Structures are given as C-alpha cells and as structure tokens.
Simulated assay, not measured.
Amino acid sequence: MARDPKNPPDLDAAYALETPDDNLRLYGDWADSYDHSFAQAMDYQLPTHVARTFAELGGDGPVLDVGAGTGLLGEALRPLCDLDIDALDLSGEMLAVANSKGIYRKLIEADLTKSLPLAPASYGGVVSSGTFTHGHVGPDAIDGLLDAAKPGALFVLSVNAEHFEARGFADKFEALAPQIEDYHIKTVQIYGAGAEGDHAGSQGHLAVFRKHSHP
C-alpha cells in the first residue's frame, strides 16, 4: 500500500512508542525520510516555536538539543542564536542525518531514561521539540537535564498538550518549584496550515523556565 504523505503511518507508530527499543527500531528506519515524509508533509512547526521562544528570551549557550533527531530544532535555532549547540538522541541513525547538516558541535547518543553522559552544570540552555510526547520518555528525564544545566540556564521543552497532565508533567513541574524559576506554559500549534489528517490540530505546551540561579 502506498504511503499517504499527508498522514504518514509513522506518526501513529511514533505516538505508540513505549520502550527505548521501540524507539530505536522506528527512528532507525525513519531517519533517512523523516524530514520529507513527516516534517515537510505535516508542516511541522514545533521546532520553530521552540527556537523562537528560546531566542526571544535571550537564551545562552552552549545549548543542549534534547531528542535532536535529524536536527530540525538546530536548523531553526541556528539563524537566531550564534551559540554552540550539542545534539542528544537515542538514535544513531537520526544523529547521522543531523550531523550532515553541519549545525552541531557535538553528537551525544544516549537514552534519556538512564544516567546521561553529561558534565554537571555545563549547558547555558536546554531545548527540546517533540521528545516529551506519547512515547517512553516521561517527566523524570528532566532531572538529569537540570543537573547538566548551569544556574540560570533557560529551558524550553515541548510537551504534547494532550498528555501534559495525564503523564505527570504538570505534577513534575510543581515538584520542581524549588529548583526552577520563571516557569510558565506557552501553548502552540504543532503543525501548520498545510497539515492534514487526524493529528493536524494537535497542540503542544512549551514548558519555559530557568534553573534556579541560587543553590
């Protein structure tokens, strides 16, 4: 059966991910066609929303792009901020595509659900587009990202709006209140006017905050 470019079956598969192994299989197969079959076909706007929000709030570097995939967020951020950006993703195949774009200082192949190979207090900004969604990465992964951030580091993390409360993100940010400041939510459309299909109207919450400046 021919694939419908306006509603690729891979999107439903991505939303059904439950384990790191599921993630590796799906994105390993999808890496080479992801930008065309998904991002272009669905008019994927979330990386642009994250990048613009980070830039408008004066985010500093170096920046960690969490769940960087093929580098769509890095591509959106590069013209707005002249900062070093590192890409972190579980999929080596996706990172290889990102690397080919010449955006990133460093590639980090790692599982967000496990201990991360990141030096403490090493990043001035942390951004993420499309990683905290229906899949295996839950809100507890934010703890390791906070450890890797400098005091005052700006975070802009997208979370699928439908699952923000159901998957525990709202409770997590409430629990993190002593460690973060300037926390607020910005709601955006994940896809643009060119999107069609069941997911075309989906929204994302951008969780925007800074790591507390004082211990």
Results as ranks from 00 to 15, higher is better:
residue 156 V to Y: 10
residue 122 S to E: 08
residue 124 G to N: 00
residue 143 D to F: 06
residue 153 A to W: 11
residue 129 S to Y: 04
residue 161 A to Q: 14
residue 127 V to C: 09
residue 168 G to K: 10
residue 168 G to T: 02
residue 164 F to G: 02
residue 156 V to W: 02
residue 149 A to W: 03
residue 164 F to N: 04
residue 157 L to W: 00
residue 121 A to K: 15
residue 162 E to F: 12
residue 146 L to M: 05
residue 125 G to E: 09
residue 142 I to A: 03
residue 146 L to V: 04
residue 121 A to H: 13
residue 167 R to W: 06
residue 162 E to S: 14
residue 133 T to Y: 06
residue 161 A to S: 14
residue 162 E to N: 14
residue 139 P to H: 12
residue 148 A to G: 10
residue 145 L to T: 02
residue 147 D to L: 14
residue 143 D to A: 14
residue 132 F to I: 00
residue 143 D to W: 07
residue 131 T to L: 15
residue 124 G to R: 03
residue 168 G to N: 04
residue 158 S to F: 03
residue 151 P to Q: 10
residue 147 D to T: 15
residue 127 V to Y: 01
residue 147 D to N: 13
residue 142 I to G: 01
residue 127 V to K: 01
residue 166 A to F: 10
residue 130 G to H: 04
residue 123 Y to W: 06
residue 128 S to L: 08
residue 156 V to G: 06
residue 164 F to W: 10
residue 148 A to L: 04
residue 136 H to W: 11
residue 162 E to G: 13
residue 151 P to R: 07
residue 122 S to C: 07
residue 140 D to P: 06
residue 162 E to D: 13
residue 132 F to K: 09
residue 130 G to T: 09
residue 139 P to N: 00
residue 148 A to R: 05
residue 148 A to D: 08
residue 139 P to Q: 03
residue 135 G to I: 12
residue 156 V to I: 08
residue 148 A to Y: 04
residue 153 A to H: 07
residue 120 P to Y: 08
residue 143 D to T: 13
residue 153 A to N: 07
residue 123 Y to T: 12
residue 150 K to E: 15
residue 135 G to M: 02
residue 123 Y to I: 10
residue 161 A to R: 13
residue 142 I to N: 02
residue 122 S to Y: 08
residue 129 S to F: 03
residue 130 G to M: 05
residue 158 S to G: 02
residue 119 A to F: 10
residue 128 S to D: 13
residue 128 S to H: 04
residue 138 G to N: 14
residue 159 V to L: 07
residue 145 L to I: 00
residue 123 Y to M: 08
residue 146 L to A: 01
residue 121 A to P: 04
residue 150 K to Q: 15
residue 167 R to M: 11
residue 123 Y to C: 12
residue 165 E to Q: 14
residue 126 V to G: 00
residue 165 E to T: 14
residue 144 G to D: 08
residue 127 V to S: 03
residue 139 P to Y: 08
residue 162 E to Y: 13
residue 125 G to K: 05
